[in-house]
Simulated assay, not measured.
Amino acid sequence: MNQITVYTTTTCPYCVMMKDFLREKGLPFSEVNVQQDRAAADRLVKTTGEMGVPQTEINGQWVLGFDPEKVMQLVK
């Protein structure tokens, strides 16, 4: 079972693309909206050093931006 978390904002088109891609592939995920959750946003920046979204954590590995190829490499 994959552990997938997508960190998003409300207005990010690439976040929508990432979520749609995961749904199309039948990959369940949880979503954290960093616009609504400042503590999560702070944790994200501390963890990855990146401000941009989407950032997707897959089984402890990070994918920055919308990168379907990297997602498919990381899922089991």
Results as ranks from 00 to 15, higher is better:
Leu22Met: 02
Leu27Gln: 04
Arg23Ile: 09
Pro68Phe: 00
Gly60Thr: 08
Thr47Glu: 15
Gln61Ile: 06
Trp62Asp: 09
Arg43Gly: 13
Lys76Leu: 07
Val34Leu: 02
Glu69Cys: 07
Pro13Leu: 05
Lys70His: 05
Tyr7Trp: 10
Lys76Val: 08
Val75Phe: 00
Thr11Cys: 14
Met1Val: 12
Cys15Pro: 04
Gly26Thr: 03
Gln73Ser: 10
Val45Asp: 11
Phe66Leu: 11
Gly52Leu: 09
Tyr7Cys: 11
Tyr7Glu: 08
Thr9Asn: 12
Thr8Gly: 07
Glu57Gln: 14
Val16Arg: 15
Glu24Gln: 11
Pro54Gly: 10
Thr10Asn: 15
Ser30Met: 12
Arg23Glu: 14
Lys46Cys: 10
Phe21Ser: 04
Met18Phe: 00
Cys12Thr: 06
Thr9Pro: 10
Thr11Trp: 09
Tyr14Gln: 15
Gln36Ala: 15
Arg23Gln: 14
Val6Ile: 14
Pro13Val: 06
Phe66Asp: 03
Leu44His: 01
Gly65Asn: 06
Leu74Arg: 01
Ile4Gly: 02
Thr8Val: 13
Arg43His: 09
Val16Ile: 15
Gln35Val: 06
Thr47Lys: 15
Pro13Ala: 07
Leu74Lys: 01
Lys19Val: 02
Glu31Lys: 03
Arg23Val: 11
Met17Gln: 12
Glu31Met: 05
Gln73Pro: 04
Pro13Arg: 07
Gln61Glu: 14
Arg43Thr: 14
Ala41Tyr: 03
Val45Tyr: 12
Val16Asn: 13
Ala40Asp: 03
Lys25Arg: 09
Ala40Trp: 00
Thr10Arg: 12
Tyr14Val: 13
Lys70Tyr: 00
Gln3Tyr: 07
Pro54Thr: 10
Leu27Arg: 02
Val63Lys: 01
Phe21Tyr: 05
Val63Ile: 09
Thr11Pro: 15
Lys70Asp: 04
Arg38Glu: 15
Thr47Pro: 12
Thr9Gln: 12
Gly60Pro: 09
Ala41Val: 05
Gln3Arg: 13
Leu44Ile: 06
Tyr7Ser: 09
Arg23Phe: 02
Ala40Ser: 07
Val63Gly: 01
Thr56Val: 14
Asp67Ala: 07
Lys70Ile: 04
Val75Ile: 08
Val71Pro: 00
Leu22Val: 02
Thr48Trp: 00
Trp62Phe: 12
Val45Ile: 15
Cys12His: 02
Thr9Ala: 12
Val34Gln: 01
Glu24Ala: 08
Gln3Ala: 14
Gln35Asp: 14
Arg23Ala: 13
Pro68Gly: 06
Arg23Pro: 05
Gln61Trp: 02
Trp62Cys: 10
Val63Asp: 01
Thr47Met: 12
Ala41His: 06
Ala39Pro: 08
Pro68Lys: 03
Met1Asp: 11
Val75Leu: 04
Thr8Phe: 01
Leu22Cys: 01
Val16Trp: 02
Gly49Trp: 05
Arg23Trp: 02
Glu31Cys: 05
Glu69Lys: 12
Gln35Ser: 12
Phe21Met: 06
Val16Tyr: 04
Ala40Glu: 03
Lys76Arg: 09
Glu31Gln: 07
Gln3Phe: 06
Gln36Phe: 04
Thr9Phe: 03
Gly26Cys: 03
Thr5Met: 08
Cys15Phe: 00
Asp42Leu: 10
Val34Cys: 02
Lys25Thr: 03
Thr11Arg: 13
Thr5Lys: 13
